[in-house]
Amino acid sequence: MPDGATPFVLDVKDLKTVFRTRGGEVHAVNNVSFTLKPGELLGVVGESGSGKSVTMMSLIRLLPMPPAEIRGGSVMFEGQDLARIPEEMMRAIRGARIGMVFQDPMTSLNPVFTVGYQIMEPLRTHMGLSKAQATTRAAELLDLAGIPDARRRLADYPHQFSGGMRQRVMIAIALACDPKVLIADEPTTALDVTIQAQILELIKELRQKLGMAIVWITHDLGVIAGIADRVMVMYGGQVVEQAPVRELFANPQHPYTRMLLETVPHIRGERAAKLRVIQGQPPILSRAPDSCPFRARCPQAFDRCAHENPARFDVGPAHDAACFWDFKTGAKRDV
């Protein structure tokens, strides 16, 4: 399939998603832009309601419309704009070329079908495999996802698996059609740390073997630090900072990122006597923002922040931050 001249597997520009509810509009995603290179793992962090899930659901068009409405933007994937192609073309991509794993495997797995059936389903519809071929492939996938005795377990139902194993099943399903991009929305949030460690190990292994690009949504900075190549920080429906993982942790340039990194306690090293607090609450997204969404909680805020929503400024190599304050010079930005 021709990819055009772009070096990106996914190129999202100015994505805008609004929910129209009885209580008014919710501007969940505001001009979100990002790219994904082949084989890259992009971590997406941000607090709940910051728009992480809605962004990703918008680009694969998995939102209930209405109330959701995609108001603008483009999503280039394999030479097509996913925001514009007809739904039947989208169906051929979703779950096949773009795989998905969600937080709660129990709600995404169907309790009345065997796990084997659910892995074979996309193999048969998207890849046209025969039943025998699909069975063999399904067993391979379960095995790849680290489920012992895979062939036999195909006949089991979801409730016969533990939470961690169900997430492995979800990963097997997501990988079934050899996707180019995997979108994982808080896939380990509901799991215990020892099980999370197993899944993270599995993902690292699978990346080496299969080389797909991954978007990994989480609110856990520790998980991000361990698996991401690059990190995108979201706040109030916007991307506020984006940088390679080491750069972001060593050299954060947005006030929100800087405070977020100081508010989490560590398990090793020095123990802070008191936790840093980000005062206040996240913004209510009832209008398209005409000011900085972090303004109410930002210790750096000044008059300009109240009148203008900052663009993403380049603040270093492959590093940008949406803030009028320049931490490198310790002064207001003059652009």
Binding site: A197, G222, A225, G226, L261, H266, R268
Partner: peptide, 9 residues
């Protein structure tokens, strides 16, 4: 098993 918020770790 606890992941530290520090890539170098």
């Amino acid at each position: 098993a606890v992941p530290e918020p520090d890539p170098a770790s």
